[in-house]
Design a protein around this nucleic acid. Structure first.
Length: 553
DNA sequence: TTTAGGG
DNA sequence: CCCTAAA
């Protein structure tokens, strides 16, 4: 989270985050930031599903807030205009003329969004604070099968999309044909030969279904401040407010559907049957962009983009991200814990339900991992019902909700294999839980939990500190704690004994961590000697005599 | 259901 | 991580 906090220009943040992980996360994130930041207007920037709704602060007041609404109306056209320099931010992308204004037109054909919905979950995620605490959103995203989402959001780091037929005329291939067009032009929009404002008019007058938002060197006022989150805990209200305040019809927004913590987007392209439809091809990163090829062919053929998109996540990534699929510790066997296999045709990702607290997970691998350029399928959040869903054309992310085990049966997750680790099958053919290494941050959380609740209250710790980590069960916490104690013990031993040094087979943990464990071990003797369960950290004082390493197995 | 512990 | 007894 700190990640974003320190960023003044939100797109800059995007860049960096993208580089950090996946564009998808970024977008979602930006969206959040925007939403949270601005609780009364979309002014600063609004991005979702790769469609940006931005308004220049300089143009501000009247601007296209309507765009947002129209988006919900499933009509989107977006134009962006910004300083070229911005393209350079945070990446290896080279030259972008600093003072030139680039226009990016995002054109989403209406038809492609006909099925698009902006929906909110009724049962959503945790308060925003949770996002901050457990930034594991990516986990939820990776749950997607993004075979269908190719071109939906091209990871920013991906290489440039062929400009193909974009010759500055309206033959660019797709104004309204499919997907999105991000196009660069100087003072004019090459695609239409119109100025941006003209485009705007055009979009309004003639292409009512579309929206164009002008974008101009918007700066996100200040660093993202978590404190702002509290100001906007109701996204629905946020939307509604904007809608009404702008005197726009609320026709497109299903206010009732909007809930406090999330919005689901579903894009369902109807034109390219059975194809990966690029609802959006969004490339902010490449220096000059571009008209994103909109035809599915364009995307599918030999563009590095495609290849990348199809590539499976790395093993490690899978490890970290498979939570989403993981449900109940014991039942989750069927739903693979592996990352989505890029099965092209399998576009539907089941709607998995998860407890609220786990629904909006963000993972910013900030500590133990560096997942540069790892792509995450863009998540279009979709409601749990997954109804009216054209699996062949859309990607779908179901924002999980309440856990309903039986739903799992209907989950269409069809991950071909567990790339990650062939899981052993026991006699019953039940797969073992995938082994997940504990990250340092997880360990820290565990330690914090123990510090707060004391040893033995694993469920509480789980709820408080691992609410977003589906794969960590209270039992896991317990086991881990046990192992930590062991580790500290062994560490001490290795300090004193030479022999111990040879036993350093465990993963290195920061000394600080081990030290804390050690302290807590003293404060909270391992359950064996534990007494009072009900009070907080009861044993610290009640049975200090146990406080020594002897508790360690 | 949750914990503690053994494997 | 799994399994299970015990609470």
């Amino acid at each position: 989270m700190e990640f974003v906090c320190g960023i003044d220009e939100w797109w800059k943040g995007v860049m960096e985050i993208v580089e950090f992980g996946s564009k998808n996360e970024v977008f979602m994130f930006v969206w959040q930031v925007a939403g949270l930041k601005r609780n009364s207007a979309y002014r600063s920037g609004f991005a979702s599903l790769g469609v940006w709704f931005d308004e220049s602060e300089t143009r501000d007041d009247h601007a296209s807030i309507s765009g947002v609404l129209r988006f919900d109306e499933k009509r989107v056209l977006k134009g962006m205009e910004r300083k070229g320099a911005l393209y350079n931010i945070g990446s290896s992308i080279a030259s972008k003329r600093e003072n030139e204004i680039n226009q990016d037109i995002l054109d989403l054909k209406r038809s492609q969004f006909e099925a698009g919905k902006i929906q909110a979950q009724n049962d959503l995620s945790p308060p925003c604070e949770d996002y901050l605490l457990d930034i594991e959103f990516a986990e939820s995203i990776t749950n997607l099968d993004y075979g269908s989402s190719r071109g939906l959001l091209d990871p920013i780091l991906e290489s440039q999309i062929p400009l193909s037929s974009c010759d500055g005329t309206d033959t660019c291939g797709m104004p309204y044909s499919s997907g999105l067009v991000v196009q660069e032009s100087q003072s004019q929009n090459a695609m239409f030969g119109l100025t941006n404002s003209e485009l705007h008019d055009l979009s309004r007058d003639k292409c009512e279904s579309q929206m164009l938002v002008e974008y101009n060197a918007v700066k996100f006022p200040t660093a993202f401040n978590p404190g702002d989150i509290s100001n906007v805990d109701d996204v629905a209200g946020f939307f509604a407010e904007a809608a009404s305040s702008e005197k726009l019809n609320d026709s497109m927004i299903d206010h009732s559907a909007l809930t406090s913590n999330g919005i689901s987007f579903m894009s369902n392209a109807t034109q390219n049957e059975g194809q990966d439809v690029n609802c959006e091809s969004f490339d902010m990163h490449e220096s000059s962009v571009v008209s994103a090829p909109v035809t599915s062919e364009a995307i599918n053929t030999d563009t590095p983009v495609t290849q990348k998109r199809l590539r499976k996540p790395t093993r490690r990534y899978i490890d970290e991200s498979s939570d989403l699929n993981a449900k109940r510790p014991k039942k989750r066997a069927e739903v693979s814990t592996s990352a989505p296999e890029s099965k092209n045709k399998l576009l539907k990702v089941g709607c998995q339900k998860k407890p609220r607290a786990e629904s909006m997970e963000m993972v910013l691998f900030s500590e133990e991992s560096s997942y540069k350029a790892i792509q995450v399928p863009f998540a279009s959040l979709v409601n749990e019902e997954c109804d009216d869903w054209d699996a062949s054309n859309a990607i779908q992310v179901c924002k999980p909700h309440k856990e309903e085990p039986h739903k799992e049966a209907t989950t269409v997750v069809n991950y071909k294999d567990d790339v990650v680790a062939p899981k052993k099958l026991d006699q019953d053919g039940v797969r073992r839980k995938h082994h997940r290494l504990w990250t340092v941050s997880e360990v820290r959380k565990l330690i914090d939990g123990v510090a707060q609740y004391g040893v033995g209250r694993w469920s509480h710790i789980k709820k408080l500190y691992f609410s977003s980590s589906v794969h960590r069960t209270p039992v896991d916490l317990k086991d881990k704690w046990r192992n930590l104690l062991k580790a500290t013990y062994l560490q001490k031993q290795s300090k004193t004994t030479e022999k111990g040094k040879h036993n350093l087979s465990w993963r290195p943990l920061p000394k600080s961590v081990l030290h804390r464990v050690s302290e807590l071990a003293n404060m909270h003797p391992y359950p064996r000697n534990r007494r009072c369960k009900s009070s907080r950290s009861p044993c610290a004082s009640s049975s200090p005599e146990h406080s020594n390493s002897t508790n360690i197995p």
